[in-house]
């Protein structure tokens, strides 16, 4: 009997280690990095991780919705790129030599914010419409739309005398609004966009957990047929989820333009892949119908710590890709274990 208990205990311990291996790995990694370079845990470094995470969070929350519908969204990165470039071009300082629209007065911020959200929303609407109405897999739809968006972006950058150059020289009102700071920790400023990101995350938590739309999203992701026969407007929910995702890309694009300051055709490249990885690491499962806001946050932050950590360890950037890939594989395998019925 005692022998058996011991076996069960060992089994439980094994389970614990496997299921939490990601966190254990993370703790080990942080310890290793700190030993190598204690500055990793300094305030500026932590604020850096925090703000990089915050910049990606809205995008990840949007994609998470698509994954909960057991779909995906490959158009996110390019959508961010296009919206960032458009926002930037409309908010360049008047008198800047390379201004894309030299005759343009400085527009009010709110007008450009609305435009960014509308553009994102439109992209999402088109994605959602194709998925819901033509019953196409989101992978196919967004594979196509990201190409279209990239084409439009390249054409946009050729307008006037711009000739494909990156767009910089942003108006101070814009950069101040995004990267300015009202709060400092010691001598380190926390950029404003961190707070916008926090606000949006709270809003999304509310939408996911407290509204009919949110509950319907999970139901559709879990079993679209059940939702249909219960009278849920499945088409509406699908379009809604993608549109909401698009709006969040709009937010990300608007923030990103000012955050990086100089926007080109490469802006937003592969953002969706990092976001999808973050979602999966955070337990938003491709099975559909499963996911939590805190999971997405955790995933985004975890991934960011790993990226920053790898840089701190001055690991070759080529090797970093290999490590990232391995981490995603391991995270997904651990995630999948939870849904396999043990036989």
């Amino acid at each position: 009997m005692k022998q058996k208990n011991k076996g069960a205990l060992r089994e439980r311990r094994r389970e614990f280690f496997i299921n939490n291996s990601l966190y254990l790995f993370l703790i080990a990694a942080i310890v290793a990095i700190v030993i190598y370079d204690p500055r990793f845990l300094s305030v500026p470094s932590l604020v850096n991780i925090l703000s990089l995470s915050a910049a990606n969070l809205p995008l990840a929350l949007g994609i998470a919705g698509a994954i909960i519908l057991s779909g995906t969204d490959l158009s996110a990165g390019r959508a961010v790129g296009l919206i960032a470039c458009v926002s930037a071009s409309l908010l360049q300082t008047s008198g800047y030599p390379n201004k894309m629209f030299p005759a343009l007065q400085t527009l009010p911020l709110w007008a450009v914010i609305l435009l960014a959200l509308a553009m994102g929303g439109l992209i999402g609407l088109i994605n959602g419409f194709c998925v819901a109405k033509f019953r196409l897999h989101p992978f196919i739809v967004t594979l196509a739309t990201q190409l279209i968006i990239f084409g439009l972006l390249l054409m946009y950058l050729m307008i006037g005398s711009n000739n494909g150059q990156s767009i910089s020289g942003l108006d101070a009102s814009y950069t101040e609004f995004i990267t300015g700071s009202v709060l400092r920790i010691g001598s380190t400023a926390i950029p404003n966009y961190v707070f916008y990101s926090v606000g949006i995350t709270l809003l999304m938590w509310f939408v996911w957990n407290k509204t009919t739309f949110g509950k319907n999203m999970f139901a559709v992701g879990s079993n679209p047929e059940a939702a249909r026969v219960s009278g849920v407007n499945v088409t509406g929910v699908t379009v809604g989820v993608f549109t909401l995702a698009g709006i969040l890309y709009g937010v990300t694009g608007f923030i990103e333009a000012a955050r990086i300051g100089s926007n080109s055709a490469a802006t937003g490249l592969n953002y969706e892949l990092d976001a999808i990885a973050a979602c999966v690491i955070g337990g938003v499962s491709f099975v559909g119908g499963i996911g939590k806001i805190r999971g997405v946050i955790l995933g985004v932050v975890l991934l960011r710590i790993i990226f920053v950590g790898l840089t701190f360890l001055s690991i070759d950037s080529n090797l970093q890709y290999v490590i990232k890939g391995l981490i995603i594989l391991v995270a997904c395998a651990i995630d999948m274990r939870k849904y396999l019925v043990r036989k």
């Binding site: 999970f218 139901a219 992701g221 879990s222 079993n223 047929e225 059940a226 219960s230 559909g288 119908g289």
Partner: peptide
């Protein structure tokens, strides 16, 4: 026809 990942009340 049920959303198996959701709770009884949700269904």
């Amino acid at each position: 026809n049920q959303a198996l990942k959701r709770s009884v009340a949700d269904n």
